[in-house]
Structure formats: structure tokens, C-alpha cells
Amino acid sequence: MPYWLHILIWFFVAYVAISIALFYLQDYMLFKPEKLPKDFKFYYENQDFEEHNLETRDGATINGILFKPKSESKGIVLYLKGNSKSIKGWGKFAVDFTRHGYNVLMVDYRGFGKSTGRRSQKAIKRDLQVVYNKIKGRTTEDRIILYGRSLGSGFAAKLASMNNPKMLILDAPYYSLTKVTARYAPFMPLSLLIKYPLPTYKWLKYVKCPIHIIHGTNDKLIPYRTSVKLSKVNPKRTKLHSVIGGGHKDLNNFESYHKMIHEIINSNPQEIDLSTTSIHVKHSSKPNKTKT
């Protein structure tokens, strides 16, 4: 056997082995869950909250916490968190919305916190739709805000595309998880291997409510240019908010982020009469000739 053919065979075997490993190990690489015992007691200082459990049709349990504002509720924010830890730690971010008079519901995905069940993209999407339906049974959709953070941004976009919430807020979203992973494994057949492609860009096309995208300009994990690209998918409904100098995990440390949240959820967007603007004014490089 020629030496070059021997090398080629070994390269092919290694390539196939790495592909198989990526397929079976991606759950461990993508998800970083914190599991909690069933009797774990949540505690949040100066926050009014109650714990809920939802039983799914396949026997899983989805655990969540409903945070309540001190004043009369203006609506509810369904907060879909990132890929790490559990709502035990994520709950501290609820104050960013309860302070504005909104209830906040945070849920743990399957395998996170107290939530159980076999995890898959299809199962998570189904679980979140059931959660959304429960919310919709208690209030009208024009009082529901979907907030998706990092991993949760794709699921939030999917929910918004299938329903009619008041607005969709995406925090550090990705174009698709296939695109994100391609940065680290550019030569692998990821379109065939990824079990969680989460094509945010596809789902955004069908969103009918206002879309607000928040992204830090110094995000190293999901580059800021990703949100610039996403903002062009459904441009008439989308507004991009830039946190100058913000990274992937520290936006809550920026005053500008909190000002954005305040403006987004308290504003009442109104249609403007474009006929009275300069939108159709044509600029010419040729000088006007005056008659004498």
C-alpha cells in the first residue's frame, strides 16, 4: 500500500472518530447544568416569589420560579436563560423587570436545577410552548414579553414566531448554533452532526411583534456582528441596542444596559407618517443650473 494512501486512510478514520465523538458529546459541551435536589429551598433577598412545577406529557417535570413586583403587575416576562447553572443563580436578574412592575417567570430546561426529562431541541421547544400556553391562560398576549438570553435567545425567537407576544427581547443572540460551533470546528460536517442547530435567523422571519436585540460590542463568545446580521432578517420590526464595551456575561454591570431595558419595556412605539420626512428626497451630485 502506498504511503500516501496509508496516511489518507488514517486521516479518514480520525475524521470519522472525531465526528462521532462530537455527535455524542455535544450535550456535555453545550449544556453546563447545575442540578438541585427536589427539596432545595430557593431564597432571594427582598424578592417576592413562588415556585411552580409543570408536568409534561412524557412524564418530565419543568421547574420554574415566578417573581412578583411590589406594585400592580403590568404583565409578565418569560425569561429564557443561558446554557449554564440553574435558576437558583439566574433569579437575581429578575429585579431588572420586577422593578418596572412586571412579573418574571424563569424556568429550568430539562436536566437543569429541579427539572427532569430527556433533553432534545424538540422537547425543549415543546416544553416552552406549554409554559407559554399556561401564561396565556392567565393573561392576554399583549402583556407577555419574551426575553431570551444567549442560548435562550433561539428558543425565545421560536416562541415569538409561533405566538403573538407584546415584544421579543434577545440578549446576546446567535445567528444559529451551527454557525457558533463552526468557529471552533470549521472542517466538520456540523449541519449533519449538530442536534441543536437552533436557527434563530429562520424563526425571526416569522415574528410579528417588535424585536429588540441587545448585544455587547466586546462579546468574544458570540460576536457583536452576529446581532448586526440578525437585525437585517426582519428589519422593519427590529431595533439593535449596542452596549459599548459589553462582553457576553457582564451586560448587567453597564448602566446603559439598564437604561435600554427601561426604554424598551416602558415605551409605546407609534407609527410615523413617513410622507412628511426626507425619506424620498433624492440627492444629486450635479449642481443646479440657474437661468439668467
Rank of each mutant, 00 (worst) to 15 (best):
T226N: 05
Y147T: 01
T292A: 12
W4D: 01
E72Q: 14
Q270D: 00
N253C: 04
F97A: 02
Y201N: 10
H100C: 04
L251A: 06
R57V: 13
G117N: 12
I135K: 01
P69M: 11
I264V: 09
N253L: 14
V180I: 15
S84G: 13
M1Q: 01
G101C: 07
S275P: 00
G137F: 03
G216P: 05
F23Y: 15
I135Q: 01
T226Q: 02
E45K: 15
K202H: 10
S278T: 11
L274C: 07
N164G: 10
N253D: 15
G64H: 01
D58Y: 08
L170A: 06
V131G: 00
D58H: 09
Q47M: 15
F12W: 11
Y184I: 13
H280M: 07
R110K: 04
F93V: 14
I76A: 01
G148M: 04
H52K: 12
K41L: 09
K41P: 00
R119D: 02
L274W: 13
Y102L: 09
V16Y: 03
R183W: 03
K282Y: 04
P69Q: 09
K166D: 06
F187E: 05
S115A: 09
S191H: 14
I222Q: 01
V77W: 00
V130C: 03
P173I: 01
H52S: 03
S278K: 08
Y43I: 08
S278C: 06
T140E: 10
F31M: 06
Y24H: 12
P173Y: 00
S19H: 04
P235A: 13
F31T: 04
N234H: 11
E141N: 08
E271F: 03
I211D: 00
Y201H: 14
S242R: 14
D48E: 10
Q26W: 08
K114R: 10
K195P: 05
P186Q: 05
N288G: 11
